[in-house]
Design a protein around this nucleic acid. Structure first.
Length: 680
DNA sequence: GAGCACTGC
């Protein structure tokens, strides 16, 4: 093997991985902790801790169908194992496929492996993600996102092209990971020549081993990879008595720490913005009560503007200690330098699907052991650190090992469509790694039946069911798009869908004055029909103004998200033109037609105005409120509205609200509404 | 009058 170190990214490949978002992500989830950076690439490979497991991995794969690789991120397994397999000749038995949960990691890993091999990407090593691929006839090592492999299953249900599949980061237990693992189990039973490698954190290894055991099969084998010198030691401290108010306790602990401990910054984990700001104010009071104010308090949460977020990354002035009060954003998403002490409140906010109202609840729950360990790790990056858990040692021992996997707490219509499209007849009996509650599955089946995607026997319908299974949006959005093709306004509906796929385009500044200015600016786009048509207006105005940053500044819009929506819109238009027979016409300003399309997608989520002045869910009579972020919050209440999502916090709040007429319900969804009498 | 954090086809 050569040890040359050329730079071989094609220009377009380079583009793909050097967009700014990509770099942040690559830095955050970096898989190299590289003390050998001045050595040749092959020499570096030889020195990786994983190298000494190579023969063992290859031997085990010869003798077992399933191999579970245990080792935290940083062991080099994502880049090395595919190469070991290739060098040993596994590629002669089919493709070596590696699935990743995220796009950026997919591109980064593929590029890294190609570079180590001294090749161009798209030769032996390639990747496929949505809208982008470097994959040729010579490619033997294929990195891809999980969604891509799931889509490939539709065309090739036994994955006959593949000889080995590596599911990377399986411990994250995303919805797609779990679907994939369930389906791979079925395939392994039919294809004894297919091998599966699951890369997992320690905590889940035995779980996966058990899931992939069945009568007559050889038992999965686990290999534990050790990683050297990654972290400093962190000492754990617990409270003796449970504390009544963890926000106050956080503040007091931070203050005591500051008095007693040698220099080093403090990071505290709370559950939400309110708590972070409350803790900040309390801590400021402590500081104000002393003469030496050598403590700098910094809040950190998701809805802060990116410039405000930046301030936590600066070192505190000389002689000062920094205290960062953060939500879960600091647990995995970003790494704050200089942290030596961590305070763990013991709680986290978690989103959970509630099938009885088809809403999501945002609830405060105790953290899992995995989270507590992750939080502790934040103290050991610089030098040996300390973590202070605001709960007792007994409470720690009683914590759940991990948070329930996403599939168990999510709306499942997309998952059900996918499984149905793969010919799984009885979804309730499908072998999920962790089966979701039956009620959640039934809610999804009922919704899909109402949308006419499933027939009475639970089979996908033609064309609606198959279309909804194929389109990369939620079932309701896809149905809306389907109807818009028939009614002649798909162009506008695609814009709305693209705008709904990105994070909010409305900027909400931190200061009260700026917030007020923002609200006034946003009125410019608001219409009485509601939030979805308002999004369409924002898009049109942005395009008309030449898609400039200045326009976004003037109207308090987030340029990055808006630009992304425009790109997505183009890609979706291409996709729909190319693959699906949806006619793309403009309604040319006929807003009523748009609202009808919206109704055709969201008719199961209707609220009517009760004479008492509150909204009620039409199906259940449950009381609902319009979310204060909605356009319709300040406008006179309409009699009937549809909503895009329902979130339970202090109340059941409706988001993405659109005004409709009652008669549209019987016109557009007669099968659903003919029997319903509206309570008034 | 209210906003845990992400990601994917």
């Amino acid at each position: 093997m050569s040890t040359l170190k050329p730079k071989f990214l094609k220009p377009e490949t380079d583009d793909a991985i050097t967009d700014s978002a990509g770099h942040e992500e690559a830095a955050a989830t970096s898989f190299v902790f590289n003390t050998n950076h001045n050595l040749g690439l092959q020499e570096q490979r030889e020195r990786l801790p994983i190298r000494k497991y190579r023969d063992q991995i290859l031997y085990c794969l010869e003798h077992h169908q399933v191999l579970i690789l245990v080792g935290e991120t940083g062991s080099g397994k994502s880049t090395q194992v595919p190469q070991y397999l290739y060098e040993w000749g596994w590629h002669t038995k089919g493709l070596i496929g590696i699935t990743e949960p995220r796009r950026v990691a997919t591109l980064t890993l593929a590029n890294r492996v190609a570079e180590e091999r001294g090749e161009l990407i798209g030769a032996t090593v390639g990747y496929v993600v949505r809208f982008m691929e470097r994959f040729t006839a010579e490619t033997h090592i294929k990195f891809m996102t999980e969604g891509i492999l799931l889509r490939e299953l539709l065309a090739d249900p036994l994955l006959t092209q593949y000889g080995v599949i590596i599911v990377d980061e399986a411990h994250e237990r995303n919805m797609l990971t779990d679907l994939l693992l369930g389906l791979l189990k079925k395939i392994l039973r039919k294809r004894s020549n297919l091998k599966l490698i699951i890369s997992s954190a320690t905590i889940d290894a035995s779980f996966f081993a058990e899931f992939f055991s069945w009568p007559g099969a050889d038992q999965p084998i686990s290999i534990k990879l050790t990683i050297e010198g990654r972290m400093h030691e962190v000492n754990h401290y617990y409270v003796n008595e449970p504390c009544a108010d963890y926000v106050r306790e956080t503040v007091e602990t931070a203050w005591k720490l500051h008095q007693r401990e040698p220099p080093g910054d403090i990071l505290a984990f709370l559950t939400g913005q309110d708590e972070v700001l409350e803790a900040r104010d309390l801590l400021q009071e402590y500081i104000a009560s002393t003469e030496t104010a050598n403590l700098k308090v910094l809040p950190m949460y998701g809805s802060m503007s990116s410039t405000d977020q930046l301030s936590v990354f600066f070192t505190a002035p000389k002689g000062m200690r920094k205290v960062v009060l953060a939500t879960n954003i600091a647990e995995t998403s970003l790494t704050i330098p200089g942290i030596v002490y961590v305070i763990d409140s013991g709680y986290v906010k978690l989103k959970c699907f509630n099938p009885s109202t088809c809403s999501d609840s945002l609830v405060i729950v105790p953290v899992s052991k995995a989270s507590a360990i992750q939080r502790a790790g934040r103290a050991g990056r610089l030098r040996p650190g300390k973590i202070f858990h605001l709960y007792t040692r007994q409470d720690y021992d009683a914590l759940a090992p991990r948070q329930p996997p996403e599939l168990r707490r999510s709306e499942l219509s997309a998952a059900v469509l996918q499984l149905k499209a793969l010919g799984i007849k009885n979804i309730l009996r499908f072998d999920f790694p962790s089966p979701p509650p039956a009620k959640n599955l039934l809610a999804a089946l009922e919704l899909l039946y109402a949308l006419n995607a499933l027939d009475v026997d639970g089979e996908l319908t033609q064309p609606v069911g198959y279309l909804l299974a194929e389109l990369p949006f939620s079932a309701m959005l896809s149905k809306m798009l389907f109807v818009s093709g028939q009614l002649g306004c798909a162009e506008e509906i695609i814009t709305i869908i693209a705008m709904l796929q990105v994070q909010s385009v409305f900027s909400r500044p931190a200061s009260a004055a700026a917030q007020q200015m923002g609200r006034i600016a946003h009125r410019h786009f608001e219409v009485a029909e509601g939030d979805l048509v308002t999004l369409l207006n924002v898009h049109s105005a942005f395009v008309e103004a030449g898609m400039t940053k200045e326009f976004c500044g003037q109207y308090y819009l987030i340029y990055r998200n808006l630009k992304r929506a425009c790109e997505l819109r183009e890609q979706l238009l291409n996709l729909i033109r190319r693959k699906y027979g949806i006619a793309i016409f403009s309604c040319k300003g006929d807003v009523e037609l748009l609202c009808k399309c919206i109704t055709a997608g969201f008719f199961t989520q209707v609220a009517y105005l009760h004479h008492s002045g509150v909204y009620r869910q039409i199906s259940s009579g449950v009381e609902l409120a319009i979310h204060p972020n909605s356009t319709l919050y300040t406008l006179p209440a309409a009699k009937y509205i549809v909503y895009g999502e329902l979130l339970q916090t202090t109340k059941l709040f409706m988001n993405q609200v659109t005004v409709i007429r009652q008669e549209w319900l019987t016109e557009l969804a007669p099968h659903y509404y003919q029997q319903t009498t509206v309570r008034d």
